[in-house]
C-alpha cells in the first residue's frame, strides 16, 4: 500500500486575548491509501483543529500552524499556497462536518451548492454538473433526487442534510475524506445509517477516511487504526482491536471504562475520569494527563513521555505502559 498522508510534528496555536492557546502540540501519524483512521478525544483535545490545519482551513487570525509537515501524496500541504490548496480541497481531500444543520447555506438551493465543487474541479458544464449532482444524491440514498435538488436546506431533515453534505464531499471522488463527527448531531438510528453509508461509499470509491469522534464505540467497527488525543497530544495509537483489548495508556483505559454498556447487571453509575483537561494557555510540562492520572509518578510531572513502541504498530505515551498491561480497568491499583 502506498502512503497517502503523513503528518509530522504538527503544532497549531491560537491567539486569545494576550495568551497563546496550544491547541495541537506536535502530532505525527500516517495513513495509507484506502486506509481508515479514527481520531478520538474529548472536546478541545485538538482533533478537529489538527484536521482543519491539514486542509489549510484554520482561520488566521487568530490561529496559525506553528510547525510541522503534512505530506499528502508527497506534497507538503502546510507549505502549499492558498491557490494550490483550493485545487486540492474538494478534489483530493474533502470534509464532512459535525452539524448538518449549519453546514449548508440556508438561502441557496442544495443543487447550487452541490454543483459548485463539480464545476470548480471537474470542468463540467452546468447540465453535466447537475446530472452528476443528481447521481451523487442517488448514491447517498436521497429519494427523488431530480426533484429535491431544487429544494432549500430547511426543507430537509437532519439526516437528509448530512447525506447531502456527504454527497457534496464526494462529488469529485476525493482520495481522502475527513469526517468530523458527522453523526454527533443525529439520533442513534440515523447515526447508524450514516456510518453504514460512509463505510459503503469508502469501499465503493476506494478512498481513505479519517473519522473524528469522541465516541469510541462508534468508531470500533469502522476503522483500522485508532489515534487517541488528549490536550493536543497523541497519547496512544494502535490497530483498533489491539487498542480495545490491550490499552496501554491510562487515558484510553479511562475512556473505555466510561463507555456505557447495555449488559451490566447492577445499575452502577457511569464511570468518569476525575478532574479537568489541562489549561492550554500554558505550555504543558510533563505528561498532559498526569494531573488526572491515578498512576502518576514523580517522573510524569517533569518529563513529557515520548510515544513508546509497545507492540506491533502500537504506541503509547505513558512512562508506565509496561505495568499497565497488568490491569484491565481504570483506577485499579497497579
Amino acid at each position: 500500500m502506498t502512503r497517502l498522508l503523513e503528518v509530522k510534528d504538527l503544532k497549531v496555536r491560537f491567539r486569545s486575548d494576550r495568551t497563546i492557546i496550544h491547541a495541537v502540540n506536535g502530532i505525527s501519524y500516517s495513513l495509507d491509501e484506502g486506509g481508515s483512521l479514527a481520531v478520538v478525544g474529548e472536546s478541545g483535545s485538538g482533533k478537529s483543529v489538527g484536521m482543519l490545519a491539514i486542509m489549510g482551513l484554520i482561520p488566521n487570525p487568530p490561529g496559525w500552524v506553528e510547525s510541522g509537515q503534512a505530506l499528502f501524496k508527497g506534497r507538503d500541504l502546510l507549505k502549499a499556497s492558498e491557490g494550490e490548496l483550493r485545487l486540492i480541497r474538494g478534489k483530493e481531500i474533502a470534509m464532512v462536518f459535525q452539524d448538518p444543520m449549519t453546514s449548508l447555506n440556508p438561502v441557496l438551493p442544495i443543487g447550487l451548492q452541490l454543483t459548485e465543487a463539480i464545476q470548480t474541479h471537474l470542468g463540467l458544464d452546468k447540465n453535466q454538473a447537475r446530472e452528476r449532482a443528481i447521481e451523487m444524491l442517488r448514491m447517498v440514498g436521497l429519494p427523488n433526487p431530480a426533484q429535491r435538488i431544487k429544494d432549500f436546506p430547511f426543507q430537509f431533515s437532519g439526516g437528509q442534510r448530512q447525506r447531502v453534505m456527504i454527497a457534496m464531499a464526494l462529488t469529485c471522488t476525493p482520495s481522502l475524506l475527513i469526517a468530523d463527527e458527522p453523526t454527533t448531531a443525529l439520533d442513534v438510528t440515523i447515526q447508524a445509517q450514516i456510518v453504514e453509508l460512509v463505510r459503503d461509499l469508502q469501499k465503493q470509491l476506494g478512498m481513505a477516511i479519517i473519522w473524528i469522534s469522541h465516541n469510541l464505540g462508534l468508531v470500533a467497527g469502522v476503522v483500522d487504526t485508532v489515534l487517541v488525543m488528549y490536550s493536543g497530544f497523541i497519547v496512544e495509537q494502535a490497530p483498533v482491536d489491539d487498542l480495545y483489548e490491550h490499552p496501554r495508556h491510562p487515558y484510553t483505559l479511562g475512556l473505555l471504562h466510561a463507555v456505557p454498556k447495555l449488559d451490566t447487571e447492577n445499575q452502577e453509575r457511569l464511570a468518569s475520569i476525575d478532574g479537568m483537561p489541562p489549561d492550554l494557555r500554558k505550555p504543558i510540562v510533563g505528561c498532559p494527563f498526569a494531573p488526572r492520572c491515578p498512576y502518576r509518578q514523580e517522573k510524569c510531572d517533569q518529563q513529557t513521555p515520548p510515544l513508546f513502541e509497545v507492540g506491533p504498530q502500537h504506541q503509547s505515551a505513558c512512562w508506565r505502559w509496561q505495568e499497565l498491561s497488568k490491569i484491565s480497568t481504570f483506577g485499579e491499583p497497579l
Binding site: G90, T102, P106, T120, M168, A169, T171
Partner: peptide
C-alpha cells in the same frame, strides 16, 4: 465564521465566490 462557509471552503470554493455567492445572499 458560520460552518457553511468553512464547508464551502473545504470543497475548494474561491474567496470571491464565498463572499458573493454564499455570504452576500444571506445579507440581502
Amino acid at each position: 465564521t458560520q460552518q457553511f462557509v468553512t464547508a464551502a471552503r473545504s470543497i475548494g470554493v474561491s474567496n470571491w465566490e464565498i463572499a458573493f455567492k454564499h455570504i452576500f445572499p444571506n445579507t440581502i
